[in-house]
Design a protein around this nucleic acid. Structure first.
Lengths: 188, 188
DNA sequence: ATAAATATTATACACAATGTTTATTAAGGA
DNA sequence: TCCTTAATAAACATTGTGTATAATATTTAT
């Protein structure tokens, strides 16, 4: 982790660029956003942008990584309390809720599906590791079912946002937890 | 349907452009593909492109529409035989299998998630319409569960492709059908 | 088969974003 | 403070965009 020795100027530059991109992402998808636009909005010279990032996508990636990092912290803290699946899911969904702005941008229909699956896979793996009674014969089937659950969760969260977070995080967590439980039990 | 009265030249031009884009989509995502590239690959003048499409995305849309149309035909033909859910799902999955090339392009991780959900929603609606014993009270919950199923199916298909279609269409259809059944029963 | 209609082409154009380079200025770290 | 490093303004060639024009080729309808 080469993090500590970063010049204050660099830190600020990166911060401004990220904030600028997040700003723009609230209006349109990453593919319609130009580097020039990001820089003008951040009041950062375009040459400076290229000193740190290769393109918009690279900058977005760094935003995604920060988000993932926070999710991982939530999971890790949960691991200490060693609670039920529902508690873990509730904490994740609550995190998503508490970080509405970023979550809406990163988890929307227009967002990066691969990234979204990655997040849900983190939770999924955690759940799977707890149910150790899995037969190793039907590997293909298990993989397909896992994909169903992982993508299913993406869909639930997106629908939740589409409906302007009408349900509470607890309700959503309960549904996700139940759905995951019912489907993963099909592995047997 | 304004289809019959299209000049032969127009038909060929559109065909070449579509084939060219499909060609390019096998290598990279739509966002990295330029109009110039599509035209050179198709040996069609760039001005001609603009006579028919506004941009790459518009052209891709027309390809997606053709694909949807074929899926709809499959569903309609199934409606005549009025069979089980499994049969419908099997026919759809078999369609996807028989049209590997296009399916891989349109349904991949990098593809248009909104389009993918649209396809799965077509099947989902068909299934839901058959199970009429749904209580209209828990609407929120039903919507979330439906999202789970719809996105879940997207995930299963993508995983299937990622594993190079190892399982047979019948196996995949069986799993999808079972998963949909188990989860949708949770509505009660 | 011919004429009228229409699609495609080659070419040119102004415009915008890209990615890189340069010299200069500003700010940070030791 | 002094040395190092980052950010800036400015310029540049390159590439893709979207549009327009006149010339050419093909199709459709008569």
């Amino acid at each position: 982790m080469p993090k500590k020795k970063e010049d204050r100027r660099v830190k600020f530059t990166k911060m401004f660029l990220k904030e600028s991109l997040i700003d723009l992402l609230e209006e349109k998808s990453i593919f319609k956003i130009t580097i020039k636009e990001i820089c003008e909005n951040a009041d950062i010279n375009r040459a400076t942008f290229y000193a740190h990032y290769s393109d918009q996508y690279h900058l977005l990636e760094s935003i995604e990584e920060e988000y993932i990092e926070k999710i991982l912290n939530t999971i890790d803290q949960d691991a200490l309390h060693a609670d039920s699946t529902l508690n873990l899911v509730t904490d994740i969904v609550t995190f998503i809720y508490d970080n509405k702005k970023m979550s809406r941008i990163l988890l929307s229909d227009r967002g990066d599906l691969q990234f979204q699956k990655r997040i849900m896979a983190l939770v999924h793996d955690n759940i799977l590791s707890k149910m150790k009674d899995i037969e190793p014969n039907s590997l293909e089937k298990t993989a397909l079912i896992s994909s169903f659950v992982i993508s299913g969760c993406v869909g639930v969260i997106q629908n939740w946002f589409d409906n302007d977070l009408k349900s509470s995080p607890e309700e959503v967590a309960k549904i996700i937890s139940d759905l995951a439980s019912v489907t993963l039990n099909m592995v047997h």
